[in-house]
Design a protein around this nucleic acid. Sequence first.
DNA 1: ATTGGCACTCTCGCCTGGCGAGTGACAGTT
DNA 2: AACTGTCACTCGCCAGGCGAGAGTGCCAAT
Lengths: 342, 342
Amino acid sequence: MLDDRKLAVLRAIVQDFVSTEEPVGSKTLVDRHNLGVSPATIRNDMAVLEEEGYIAQPHTSAGRVPTDKGYRLFVDRLGGVKPLSPAERKAIQQFLDCAVNLDDVVDRTVRLLAQLTRQVAVVQYPSLSSASVRHLELLSTGPGRVMLVLITDTGRVEQRVVEVPVVTSEELLPDLRARLNAVMDGKRLAAADAAVVELAQQMPAPANPVDSTVIDAVLTSLRGMIDDSSDQRVVVAGAANLTRGGHDFSDSLGLVLEALEEQVVLMRLLNEAGSPDVSVRIGHENSLESLAGTSIVASGYGHREVVARLGVIGPTRMDYPGTMGAVRAVARYVGHMLSDEK
Amino acid sequence: MLDDRKLAVLRAIVQDFVSTEEPVGSKTLVDRHNLGVSPATIRNDMAVLEEEGYIAQPHTSAGRVPTDKGYRLFVDRLGGVKPLSPAERKAIQQFLDCAVNLDDVVDRTVRLLAQLTRQVAVVQYPSLSSASVRHLELLSTGPGRVMLVLITDTGRVEQRVVEVPVVTSEELLPDLRARLNAVMDGKRLAAADAAVVELAQQMPAPANPVDSTVIDAVLTSLRGMIDDSSDQRVVVAGAANLTRGGHDFSDSLGLVLEALEEQVVLMRLLNEAGSPDVSVRIGHENSLESLAGTSIVASGYGHREVVARLGVIGPTRMDYPGTMGAVRAVARYVGHMLSDEK
DNA sequence: ATTGGCACTCTCGCCTGGCGAGTGACAGTT
DNA sequence: AACTGTCACTCGCCAGGCGAGAGTGCCAAT
């Protein structure tokens, strides 16, 4: 149905349209790429491609433009992934190596990705639920107040303050802390929650009845914290890049900006393609109406297993090979990062 | 020089222009506001106002538009501050009361402010340097690794991991922690830094020579953390609001978005007007070239003293009284919030 | 000081016609 | 059977011209 030349034509159309941002006609096509045939032949091929729905013309007697379906074919079979230059790789490494914090890692990653791809970058924090507990700390931060600090092996720190009824006895908190760490340490968060429940039942009845309510308060808050912090965070950078380039979707720009501020929406978009490797969703393929004109290139990242996802959002007319290369490279480096830095 | 009527005319021009977004002429002016005079009189007044630089016309024979100077006069002497409706106040309170975290407070505040003013909201985290130390925790998170967790009375938590040469002796960390807390507790961060230095000198020479390097590593990292974390963070929300309204500065939109992603820039903008109360910077009054078309309404917030600032950024053509009212109200509520919640 | 009238100057929207890019169809060539 | 050259045709885009409308500045009158 589609012979090699037709595929070559489609590839050429995509490449030209991406770089010039203008509908591309048969003449300019043969001029720029040296396909060994005449414009007329190309026109016939283009007619077929249009019939099959891979390209379309914005209006009669304008050049052709790839459709979502056309981009999809391009990404799957024609474009490939363009690896980064050694210089770029080095720059990535140097930039990320300076990070001291988990926050810092994420922050640098998202900026880097935005700059590298010149598009909007989105990075999800390493999920807590797939992380395991490294330490739990209980601090008395004032009369009647206890602060819980939970530290995971991905370097994330979560804190919460609990109001407890009264001043507790001296040894209560250290004791509770020791017990909790004993059962939670090294466990996955989901498992840790179960461990807390179990511990609550096995706890010896405390000497002081007030202590019992304190323990109760702390444990419920802790469970709340575990539960609550599985809703993950994402950070965004490079929104200004949306204004670059032919303001082809200038009216939908507001809608896109709105979507970028909705954590849950971004989360869903990132996770829609579950593949741990780099994946692409083009135009209408993603579920959000307001993002019909945009594509999302995403990838999981992590050390041994995928702990979260990152990606970029840009117009469907984007440089897929380059973007995919950048996303893949950054995802890998961040993965390494997480293994040794924290 | 400017009699009462001329001021009234200026006020009317500002109000009309803000609501209609179109240059306002003498006729429509007398129609909408019932100044008891004829258009011709208004024209004379407008000529004077223009001569003085309070208004300008985009082109001959179009209506008049307020200049930055005109807005300034309006804000200082004519507009006043429009208090929020009781319903709005209640909504603010309810929305903010749900916050559990410092992060949560800031997050909710910035969203609230964006929604209330329908503009871009900016909230600065309570500064660490004006905060005081509530607790310092040292945790061993693995062989050769120590995590520092610093908690301030504003509820902020800062952490950092230190690589130490070898496994430390059992009592070293608890001992060090006790000493550090003893000298730092309750101190302002700036003072705490000095206290750490002093402590370093007074420390008895440890039994084990390796311990000495550990102590060194921890203390330098701690000082780095104190120093480092005085660079504050800001969060932004409502960027989508920039696209609302007549795309009068559509070309500069990209520049504004870029500015919004630069933490340092935002910080400077917020702090430019040092007044603890609500302050306004109009158009070219703020130092950034790319924000020439925008105004910034900001205010300090905090419980007893100003711990940080918040504000909104919008087009110079904005509803100043309403915006100022919203900013003031939110700043106050967040102040209350900080006093008791954390 | 205020007013009504009048001439003037702009911008904006609309229509127009010419231009050029690009196509589809068809007949000719290899 | 596939490719090529050609030609008529269709549109969108870009001045240029025209009229309407809005608003001003000035001046004489009250």
